[in-house]
């Protein structure tokens, strides 16, 4: 399998030579079309990892390669979604979702002439996440869960090859969260997009991912890599199987001891 993302022995320090060493000796590979999850103690450098892959930060040593190119500036083949939906309140939900198209080089020149086609695509995405008919509403007229759904649409509108999700479901209630897990699962199955998900929720990681990377405490590196054995498509019921719970338990133990070491 070819790798879409390769991180090789990366060190990243914030704030100059005497600053915080966020990650050190970080190495991981994510295959094309794969669903990877990253778990680890708080402050271990997971968000830093996301920023390294998207080119928002450039490491002081080591290399990050995305789609066969070394990352030296932001790579526009990615879509990003954070825990905070960051919708722009002066734009309707639909216009918020179309925002990436006004930025990404490939689309921005086509946008005006092909507006209708793009709007249809956005509305189709809204329907996929269960927000049909909400495009004309402003973000502040939507609930937190609905905003997070719209946020996913925005991350997907420019058909990124790589979707980077940083605790996107952290602030949601359990039921909405499970619903959105299914949305993400189906998107991944239908579009073949590569996904890297950072999460604190071990059940979420186990339910969604093909592979789970466990990180050490700061400075973060990959301690262990798990392959999730459950067959796809996975049903929410899988979470009540013994093998599933054993895996969550094992992950929990690893993170707990990683925290103690720190």
């Amino acid at each position: 399998m070819s790798h879409l993302v390769t991180i090789d022995n990366v060190d990243m320090r914030y704030g100059g030579a005497a600053g915080t060493l966020a990650v050190s000796g970080l190495t991981m590979k994510v295959g094309k079309g794969e669903f990877a999850a990253v778990v680890g103690p708080s402050g271990c450098g997971k968000s830093t990892l996301m920023k390294l892959v998207t080119g928002l930060h450039i490491p002081q040593s080591g290399v990050v390669i995305v789609a066969d190119k070394q990352v030296t500036k932001p790579v526009s083949i990615v879509g990003m979604a954070f825990q905070n939906p960051t919708m722009l309140p002066w734009r309707t939900t639909l216009d918020n979702i179309l925002l990436p198209l006004e930025i990404v080089e490939r689309h921005r020149h086509r946008l005006r002439a092909n507006k209708k086609e793009y709007v249809e695509k956005a509305e189709h995405l809204l329907e996929t996440v269960g927000l049909k008919g909400f495009g004309s509403k402003f973000p502040w007229q939507l609930s937190g869960g609905m905003q997070q759904r719209a946020n996913l649409c925005r991350a997907l509108i420019h058909e990124p090859e790589l979707l980077m999700l940083d605790e996107p479901f952290g602030a949601l209630d359990a039921f909405t969260r499970e619903e959105l897990w299914c949305v993400i699962r189906d998107l991944h199955a239908a579009q073949g997009v590569t996904i890297v998900l950072v999460t604190h929720d071990l059940r979420e990681a186990t339910f969604l991912a093909d592979r789970i990377f466990v990180m050490s405490a700061r400075p973060g590196k990959v301690l262990k890599e798990h392959t999730v054995p459950f067959a796809r498509p996975r049903d929410l019921e899988v979470m009540y199987e013994k093998a599933f719970n054993d895996m969550v338990h094992e992950l929990h133990g690893e993170i707990a001891s990683a925290r103690v070491v720190a």
Binding site: M80, A81, T86, E105
Partner: peptide, 28 residues
């Protein structure tokens, strides 16, 4: 918000894009 800026910069937005799309409407 730094996160808004990150989302846009990750898409290849230049400073001018961020100002036009976010900064100026936001400061209105």
């Amino acid at each position: 918000e730094p996160e808004t800026e990150d989302v846009l910069r990750a898409l290849g937005a230049k400073k001018l894009d961020i100002m036009l799309k976010v900064g100026i409407p936001r400061s209105m």
